[in-house]
Measured scan of single mutants.
Amino acid sequence: MDPFVVLVLCLSCLLLLSIWRQSSGRGKLPPGPTPLPVIGNILQIDIKDVSKSLTNLSKIYGPVFTLYFGLERMVVLHGYEVVKEALIDLGEEFSGRGHFPLAERANRGFGIVFSNGKRWKEIRRFSLMTLRNFGMGKRSIEDRVQEEARCLVEELRKTKASPCDPTFILGCAPCNVICSIIFQKRFDYKDQQFLNLMEKLNENIRIVSTPWIQICNNFPTIIDYFPGTHNKLLKNLAFMESDILEKVKEHQESMDINNPRDFIDCFLIKMEKEKQNQQSEFTIENLVITAADLLGAGTETTSTTLRYALLLLLKHPEVTAKVQEEIERVIGRNRSPCMQDRGHMPYTDAVVHEVQRYIDLIPTSLPHAVTCDVKFRNYLIPKGTTILTSLTSVLHDNKEFPNPEMFDPRHFLDEGGNFKKSNYFMPFSAGKRICVGEGLARMELFLFLTFILQNFNLKSLIDPKDLDTTPVVNGFASVPPFYQLCFIPV
């Protein structure tokens, strides 16, 4: 058959498939802009700032609406009420993970971030239990974070109060905490193996944040037939998995079943207990991918939040002064901060919360999916439909947070200066898919920041009023603009 005829037939089939998918069930789905064949609503979305586009569309179609990214149908949730109703009140029905062709290629359905069903539930339950087990290797997770915080302070001392970009050092600290939990080992910041790991993690975040990856996920045929950065992403992930597998083999040879040292040991012990169960989800494949998931999810998000926190503290020296006064009063100079201190430091706690609220790190979270046909607000959402959640619409709700575009710790303080919780605080998402490392991340943010401010004054290279804190939105995360500062020993 003539190649031209084959091409026309293929394009015609794709067009018909697109029209059929977009028209099927439209009477039951939430409203939304009319999609174009094949490309859907992509032309109506700013790929570099999806969150802003969703906010604009919500003003037209309401808090629940339908979009098509290519052939992929998505239902968008915008605003606290619908997000709570879906992710919390109907948590089980909305607990699936959205379709990610690239991740599915890399992870093969294993791990904790992109798995679904029984596998996801069992691996998540085990990971939560293990991360909360403060007795691994007779050292609590808090001990590990405190140790890394001391190392971080010593690295900052080496800058000798000269101007520096904190990106690298602030990236090393949370990565080392995860390494300590998974591998029972922290690395020197100049260790070549550690630097290679950091390089792969950072490069992957840069790649994932590009519009090209959005295109690959919406048109998965590209993955096999086109060159691009997605190939580098898959190569980096394969490198990390190979490295983790080597460490798993080392653990198998040296493990003491009665004295687990780290996450890998705990997983291997669980595998041993379930070795007679042919349906067990505790396999080497799941261990390797879960460890890679924890490394990827637990490094860049925390380091970016820390980097943004220091920029905001530079911009608002009056806030920094209040935090340091609270540190001096509650902790002093002669001991290290600990998590028990947080309950006695409402202002510092409010500042950490406000940093996370203000920066809105992951504006749309990772997409969910419905696990069955769901009736939601008089609409029928078919099983498997991807759910896109606007966390921006919750964290920047102007009824809950007056002047949401302003950095103001009073958003989390009552009139008496006591810490005030808010149900709208969802930087880790909400419901059954809430970030498994939430507790660890909150511990790291509090301890790293208090250790830094206990030991250093922060000095800006320019007038604080002239510092730009506008986030650089890159399609996946909101990151701070480049800046330098000086760490002046107190």
Rank of each mutant, 00 (worst) to 15 (best):
C10M: 15
L11V: 12
S24A: 08
S24I: 15
R26P: 07
P31E: 05
G32V: 00
N41D: 03
L43S: 07
I47Q: 12
I47A: 14
V64M: 08
T66C: 09
T66W: 01
L67C: 10
F69K: 08
V82G: 05
V82I: 09
L87A: 03
L90F: 14
E92V: 08
E92P: 09
S95E: 14
G98H: 07
G98E: 04
H99L: 11
L102Q: 04
A103W: 13
R105N: 05
R105W: 06
G111T: 03
V113E: 05
E122T: 11
E122P: 04
I123D: 01
R124G: 01
S127A: 15
T130N: 08
N133P: 10
A149T: 03
L152N: 00
L152M: 12
V153C: 10
E154R: 11
L156A: 05
L156T: 02
T159S: 11
P174E: 08
C175G: 10
N176E: 02
Y189T: 06
Y189N: 05
K190P: 06
Q193N: 12
M198I: 10
K200C: 12
R206T: 09
T210N: 14
I213W: 12
I215Q: 05
C216M: 12
P227D: 08
F239Y: 12
K247V: 12
E250S: 10
E250P: 03
M255K: 12
R261K: 09
F263R: 01
K270N: 08
E272W: 09
E272H: 11
E274F: 08
K275P: 09
Q278F: 11
I284C: 09
L294H: 02
L295Q: 04
A297W: 13
A297Q: 14
G298T: 01
T304I: 15
Y308C: 08
L310S: 02
L310A: 04
L310E: 00
L311A: 06
P317K: 08
A321H: 11
I327K: 00
E328D: 15
R329S: 13
I331R: 01
S336D: 13
C338M: 12
C338A: 11
G343D: 15
Y347Q: 02
T348A: 06
Q356D: 00
Y358G: 00
Y358R: 06
I362V: 10
S365E: 01
S365P: 08
A369N: 15
V370D: 00
K375S: 10
R377Q: 11
Y379L: 05
P382I: 03
S390A: 08
S390M: 07
S390Q: 06
T392C: 05
S393T: 02
L395I: 05
F401Y: 13
P404L: 02
E415P: 08
S422L: 03
G437L: 03
G439M: 09
F446K: 03
L447Q: 05
L449T: 08
F451G: 15
L453T: 04
K459I: 08
L461I: 15
D463N: 07
P464A: 10
T470A: 15
G475P: 09
F476L: 11
A477I: 12
A477N: 08
P481H: 08
F482V: 15
I488E: 15
